[in-house]
Measured scan of single mutants.
Amino acid sequence: GTEIELESKNGQREHYTATSEDEARKIIEKAVRRGIKRIELRGASEQLIRDMQEIAKQIGLQYRTDGSL
């Protein structure tokens, strides 16, 4: 699965493990709508990382991946 670590603007951290790319995408989209400061992805697919970079650029988000592409 993909591990997703979120940090909201007030510094609250949340951790999710998505079993599918679809689920990961839903978690990320929800977080973005809620207003999130930072997202870290571990074990994400190349496609998901590309999507994440696109989203991050659009809304000026900090993100990090573990680089295991």
Rank of each mutant, 00 (worst) to 15 (best):
Asp66Met: 03
Ile27Ser: 01
Gly60Tyr: 08
Ser8Ile: 12
Ala18Ile: 10
Ser45Gln: 02
Ala24Asp: 00
Leu6Pro: 01
Arg64Val: 14
Arg34Gln: 11
Gln53Ile: 15
Ser8Thr: 14
Thr17Ser: 11
Ala44Thr: 02
Glu40Asn: 13
Ile28Leu: 12
Arg33Leu: 14
Asn10Gly: 09
Arg13Pro: 03
Thr17Ile: 12
Glu7Met: 09
Arg34Trp: 05
Gly43Ala: 04
Tyr16Asp: 00
Gly60Trp: 11
Gly1Gln: 11
Leu69His: 04
Arg13Glu: 03
Gly60Cys: 15
Lys57Ser: 08
Leu6Asn: 01
Ile49Leu: 11
Gln53Ser: 08
Gln53Pro: 03
Ile36Glu: 01
Gln53Thr: 08
Asp22Arg: 08
Thr2Gln: 03
Arg42Ala: 05
Gly43Phe: 12
Ile39Thr: 00
Lys57Met: 10
Gly60Lys: 05
Thr17Val: 12
Arg64Phe: 15
Gly1Glu: 11
Ile28Val: 07
Ile39Gly: 00
Thr2Asp: 01
Asp51Pro: 00
Gln58Ile: 11
Thr65Pro: 14
Leu6Ala: 02
Ile36Val: 11
Ser20Trp: 02
Arg42Cys: 06
Ile55Glu: 01
Ile49Tyr: 10
Ala18Asn: 10
Ser68His: 07
Leu41Arg: 00
Arg25Thr: 02
Lys57Pro: 03
Gly11Ile: 01
Ile27Ala: 01
Leu41Asp: 00
Arg34Leu: 14
Glu40Pro: 00
Ala44Ser: 02
Gly67Thr: 07
Gly11Asn: 03
Glu3Arg: 09
Glu21Leu: 11
Gln12Asn: 08
Thr2Val: 13
Arg42Ile: 06
Val32His: 02
Ala18Lys: 03
Gln53Lys: 11
Gln58Leu: 12
Leu48Lys: 00
Asp66Arg: 03
Lys37Thr: 09
Gln62His: 14
Thr65Ile: 12
Glu46Leu: 12
Glu29Trp: 15
Arg25His: 04
Ile59Val: 14
Arg34Asn: 13
Lys30Phe: 14
Arg50Glu: 05
Ile49Gln: 11
Asp51His: 13
Arg42Phe: 10
Gly67Met: 05
Arg64His: 15
Arg25Leu: 10
Gly1Ser: 12
Leu41Asn: 00
Ala24Gln: 00
Arg38Trp: 15
Arg42Asp: 02
Lys57His: 11
Ile59Thr: 13
Ala24Pro: 00
Arg33Asn: 09
Arg13Gly: 02
Thr2Glu: 01
Lys30Pro: 01
Gly60Gln: 06
Leu41Lys: 00
Arg38Phe: 14
Ala56Pro: 01
Ser68Asn: 07
Thr19Trp: 12
Glu29Ala: 14
Ala31Ser: 04
Gly11Cys: 13
Arg64Glu: 15
Asp22Gly: 07
Ala56Ser: 04
Lys57Trp: 10
Glu7Lys: 05
Thr2Trp: 10
Glu23Val: 07
Ile55Tyr: 13
Asp66Gln: 05
Glu23Phe: 05
Arg38Leu: 05
Ile55Val: 06
Asp51Ile: 14
Gln47Gly: 10
Lys9Tyr: 14
Val32Met: 15
Gly60Glu: 10
Glu29Cys: 15
Leu48Cys: 03
Thr19Lys: 11
Glu21Phe: 06
Ile27Gln: 01
Ile55Cys: 12
Leu48Asp: 01
Leu6Glu: 01
Arg42Met: 05
Ile27Met: 04
Asp22Met: 08
Ser20Met: 02
His15Val: 13
Gln58Pro: 02
Asp22Phe: 10
Gln47Met: 08
Gln12Trp: 11
Glu54Gln: 10
Ala44Ile: 02
Ala56Glu: 03
Ser8Ala: 10
Thr65Val: 15
Tyr16Gly: 00
Ala44Val: 04
Gly1Ile: 14
Leu41Ile: 11
Glu5His: 12
Ala18Leu: 08
Arg50Lys: 12
Ile49Cys: 09
Ile59Phe: 15
Asp66Ala: 04
Leu6Met: 09
Ala24Ile: 07
Glu7Leu: 14
Gln62Glu: 15
Ile39Cys: 03
His15Ile: 12
Arg34Ala: 13
Gly11Lys: 02
Ala18Glu: 03
Glu3Thr: 09
Glu3Ala: 06
Gly60Pro: 04
Arg34Ile: 09
Leu48Glu: 00
Glu29Asp: 08
Ile59Tyr: 15
Val32Gln: 02
Glu3Cys: 12
Gln53Cys: 12
Gln12His: 10
Arg34Gly: 10
Arg34Ser: 07
Gln62Trp: 09
Ser20Leu: 02
Arg33His: 11
Glu5Cys: 14
Met52Lys: 00
Gly60Ser: 05
Glu3Pro: 02
Ala44His: 02
Gln62Ser: 07
Glu54Phe: 10
Lys9Gly: 09
Gly67Trp: 02
Glu40Ile: 15
Leu69Cys: 14
Arg34Cys: 13
Ser68Asp: 08
Glu5Pro: 00
Gln12Glu: 13
Thr2Lys: 01
Arg42Gly: 03
Ile28Phe: 15
Ala24Arg: 00
Ile36Thr: 03
Thr65Cys: 15
Ile4Leu: 04
Gly43Arg: 07
Glu3Leu: 11
Asp51Met: 14
Leu61Pro: 05
Ala24His: 00
Gly67Val: 08
Ile36Pro: 02
Ile49Thr: 05
Arg50Met: 07
Ile55Trp: 14
Glu3Asp: 08
Leu69Met: 10
Ile39Glu: 00
Ile4Met: 03
Ala31Cys: 06
Arg64Cys: 15
Glu5Thr: 14
Ala56Cys: 11
Asn10Ala: 10
Glu54Trp: 10
Gln58Lys: 13
Leu69Pro: 08
Leu41His: 00
Ser20Pro: 02
Met52Gln: 00
Ser45Glu: 01
Ile39Met: 07
Gly43Leu: 03
Glu21Val: 07
Ala24Cys: 05
Asn10Cys: 13
Tyr63Gly: 08
Asp22Pro: 06
Leu41Cys: 03
Ile36Lys: 01
Ser45Arg: 02
Glu46Tyr: 06
Thr2Cys: 12
Leu41Gly: 00
Ile49Val: 08
Tyr63Met: 15
Ile4Phe: 02
Glu54Cys: 09
Glu3Met: 08
His15Ser: 10
Lys9Arg: 11
Ser20Ala: 04
